[in-house]
Amino acid sequence: MFKKPAHETISQRMKLIFSDQDERIIEHSPAPVEQILFEVGINPLEVIVSRNGNLISEDTVVGSEDAIRIIRIAHGG
């Protein structure tokens, strides 16, 4: 589904921060948020994502030393 452009092959460290404050460091070349979520098994429709405190859209490319916060949209009124 996602094809990596040829120039994006250098792996970089990226920090994923989840709603339960769990953190995970991954090695990944720069890629759209949607691809990162897909690879860690998260449906992009079920979360919102911010980088350094700013909301970002699913097609934003993230990479080097970025801290990505993944906020689960909780259900239940």
Partner: peptide, 20 residues
């Protein structure tokens, strides 16, 4: 959609992470 609602609240500074 549920996601649009979440984004709307975030942009309005009204998003609270509450328990499920």
């Amino acid at each position: 959609s549920e996601k649009e609602i979440a984004v709307y609240l975030m942009l309005q500074n009204e998003w609270n992470e509450l328990p499920e």
